[in-house]
């Protein structure tokens, strides 16, 4: 039984590490892309995975909020703002 629990906790740790790595990778992409649309896509991916991380950290309330607000509404607002301004970073 203890062995069983140990296996599961190791797997959970692997999941954690993977998710955190992907979060940081997408965050770096969100910073480094010159195309703002691509940056917003990366930001959406970041918040998506952040939501999964909240889910794994046993916070379903926050995960729902992050899903509804981070994935849908923030992306929508950012896209509207890019539409209202310009898409390339240099301009």
């Amino acid at each position: 039984m203890t062995n069983f629990g140990k296996v599961i906790s190791v797997i959970e740790e692997i999941i954690q590490i993977l998710i955190l790595l992907i979060i940081i990778a997408t965050a770096i992409m969100a910073v480094s892309f010159k195309d703002l649309l691509a940056a917003v896509i990366s930001l959406a991916a970041t918040s998506l995975l952040l939501s999964l991380e909240f889910y794994i950290l046993q916070a379903p309330d926050v995960a729902i909020a992050e899903a509804g607000i981070g994935a849908a509404l923030t992306t929508a607002i950012f896209i509207l703002a890019i539409k209202g301004t310009v898409r390339r970073e240099e301009l």
């Binding site: 965050a27 969100a30 910073v31 703002l36 940056a39 917003v40 930001l43 970041t46 918040s47 952040l50 991380e53 909240f54 926050v62 992050e66 923030t74 950012f78 703002a81 890019i82 301004t85 970073e89």
Partner: peptide, 17 residues
């Protein structure tokens, strides 16, 4: 400026996490 807002969002995500 929009990149700056993205940066603010990242800080906020970090604090939330």
């Amino acid at each position: 400026l929009i990149k700056i807002v993205i940066g603010l969002n990242l800080v906020e995500s970090g604090v939330n996490l």
